[in-house]
Amino acid sequence: MKTDFLKSLISTSGLSGFEAPVTELIQKKWDPLTDELSLSPLGSLHGIKRGSGKSHSLMIATHQDAIGLIISQIDGEFLHISNLGGIDIRVLPGQAVNVHADSGVLPGIICQPPAHLLPEDAATGAVALKHLLVDVGLSARQVARKIKIGDTISFATEPIEMSGGLLAGHSLDNRASVAALTLCLEELQSRQHVWDVQAIATAQEEVGAQGARTSAFALRPDLAIVVDVTFAKGPGASGWETFKLDSGPTIGWGATNHPFLHEEFKKLAEKLEMPFSVEILPSYSGTDGDDIQITAEGIPTIVISIPIRYMHTPVEVIATKDIQRTARLLTEFIVMLEDDFLEKIVWED
């Protein structure tokens, strides 16, 4: 798979609540692929691709925001930080970061005081976020002039193309799904489809799915697919809740996932001879789907996930083949939808 767009997606800042830069990038890409593009009041991007029918719409939601940091206090030349979303603090010390100040981007590093200078309870184990600092190399005076509380900080790790079709980088959660949805929109250019497709790059998933909840309320789709990432098998992660890299997308099963949609996706993947796994999500999925499902009168929803390793670290790893497979699954589902699809959804005794 061509990874240029995905690499630019993960190299562009767009932290939860501060999505504007990455939104602009997606907007440019989606503009020729959709019939209408608009922004929600919270910054979700809505791309509508009209189908040949008149009455039905399918939402495909991929969150565009990424976890990151925000400056909470300035102490001379050092910056104290708070989290935007659930960051894995164990991997923070030593990371290269970008500080997004009004005057421009300042490169910096995350540092931790030496163990003997930390409070006794923090001298061993992972150092809590409140003890970590960011150093941008400027003097206290320059820092005071250039940097302010509330400025955001994103990871600066460059994408790494690894052997075996793997890509490593930060923000693959969930820009990989944005890339899959983009691929799907490209494939749809030469395909016929009856239903309207609402391609949504949602805002603020990592801090509570604020974007998905409000976009679903505004657009009221008949059905919704949420594409997000899930846990791949890796060191220390081998249980039933993990999935091999390069083994295809997962199809959600559990309260968030409508059983009929689950069956339809399974049948479709089998028909396409595409590898897939069933992901057991008993009560919640931990994705935009949990909020979309209970919007307004309720929206039948399914969560499709792409396995990644080392979630919420700056070196998330993905098999690019799985992105292509996910895109294909979405495309084939869309073209399969006929005007009478909703009538087939019945609750059996």
Binding site: S40, P41, L42, I70, T214, F217, A218
Partner: peptide, 23 residues
Amino acid sequence: QREVANMGGTDARAIQLTHAGVP
């Protein structure tokens, strides 16, 4: 003053999530 807080929440959250979303 500029403030970044780790705890707490206000009525702002409820307003933000109403209808199609509110800044």
